[in-house]
Design a protein around this nucleic acid. Structure first.
Lengths: 211, 211
DNA sequence: CGTTGATTTGACCGGTTGGTCAAATCGGAA
DNA sequence: TTCCGATTTGACCAACCGGTCAAATCAACG
């Protein structure tokens, strides 16, 4: 929060040596693993440090505190997480646009399960550190998309749905395969859930959204 | 794990005075609140004790360890959680039976959000303590229900769906309103989400399941 | 080689946490 | 009242955890 932040006094990025960049990345990578497995409180600096191949004081040389690592992680995460929403094209074919969004979100659950679980941990425990983002950016984006969807419905190109609950459905159905992975695999007998999930969600949303 | 377990040497319940029963219940109640807010590791005995109106040593007089409280909680929780599944009647009208299940699960999210969040915490973090139940009881019940559903589909009384992914859909869509409550409310501007959720899920599953 | 700043670490600290223990207190039966 | 087991608690402990610090090491450059 003090001098080490990402932008200098003139808005230009603070100079970062190659080694600094590599170490910070290793720390974030290790932090992602540990925080997503154990939550903020369950994670320990010792485990993050050892996972990153550093000593604890060395880790604290790059990030001033446990909080700082966690917050850096959340900040970077949110961009990735909100991206697929931005990619929805108001001028596209409604059903296909939304199905594409579902497919992208499901792929993120497959490819970045740790990120999904980190986010889940934060929200389940009351989102103490990202409430402002939820009420600000996220709500704004959902409000915008809701207008678009309501327009599509009015034009008869989409079956009538509550846009916000539709968003909740997309999020919960796709993220479930990352967040509840162990349960899914226990029920499925350890097969890869994703091929089945993709066809299932395709059917589900096509039936829901086709006028 | 030693003498204080629920069944004596002859299988009969160990005698419990009224005061023991009340105190243990108060501890579980407090534990549910604290564990669901903070996860296993984030919860502290001090907080549970104070929430239950006891001193810490007094709490440990009734349960021998933090683990013991948590496990007692999980054990009791799972019954409640699996009950609505049992209530599905293979002889009933398929679509209505499944919609009833969805409605019961959603009501549980509304009425017992702490239970849902405790469960979510446990699963997200890898289900270290209830894996056996997932692979045993839960999978067995899902296998049975899958047979029933496949039968319904073969009779043409239900649209073709993968029964297991259907289960995942019911769980994720309903539990989302408890587990991600803060996010839902942030997006909806703090209105009560449940009326809207009920009609939305009714439409969603009716469209998915009607042949 | 010597210097200088960046990097790394062992030792340490204060606070918290799960758990123990011996002693005090309570409450009901005789 | 006396007694006895059930209950309650203050004091305490060892382990852990986030974080500090001074000293050591490293790496690049002149």
């Amino acid at each position: 929060m003090i001098g080490k932040s990402a932008s200098g006094k003139n808005g230009k990025a603070v100079p970062q040596t190659r080694i600094q960049k590599a170490k910070r990345e290793a720390i974030l990578e290790a932090g992602l693993t540990v925080f997503s497995e154990a939550g903020f409180r369950g994670a320990t600096l010792d485990r993050i440090a050892s996972e990153a191949g550093l000593s604890k004081p060395n880790l604290l040389y790059y990030y001033p505190s446990k909080e700082a690592i966690y917050e850096a992680l959340l900040r970077g995460l949110l961009e990735t997480w909100l991206d697929p929403l931005q990619a929805i094209d108001p001028k596209g074919e409604p059903v296909e646009e939304l199905l594409g969004y579902v497919r992208r979100k499901l792929q993120m659950s497959r490819d970045f399960p740790r990120e999904s679980r980190l986010f889940a941990n934060e929200i389940v425990q009351g989102a103490p550190r990202i409430m402002p983002v939820l009420e600000g950016e996220l709500r704004g984006m959902v409000d915008n998309l809701s207008t678009v969807i309501d327009g599509w419905i009015a034009e008869g190109r989409l079956a009538p749905v509550d846009p916000r609950h539709l968003m909740f459905s997309v999020w919960s159905l796709t993220q479930h395969y990352a967040d509840f992975d162990v349960q899914v695999r226990a029920v499925l007998n350890a097969d890869d859930p994703f091929p089945g999930a993709e066809t299932h969600l395709d059917v589900l949303f096509r039936r829901l959204l086709t006028p």
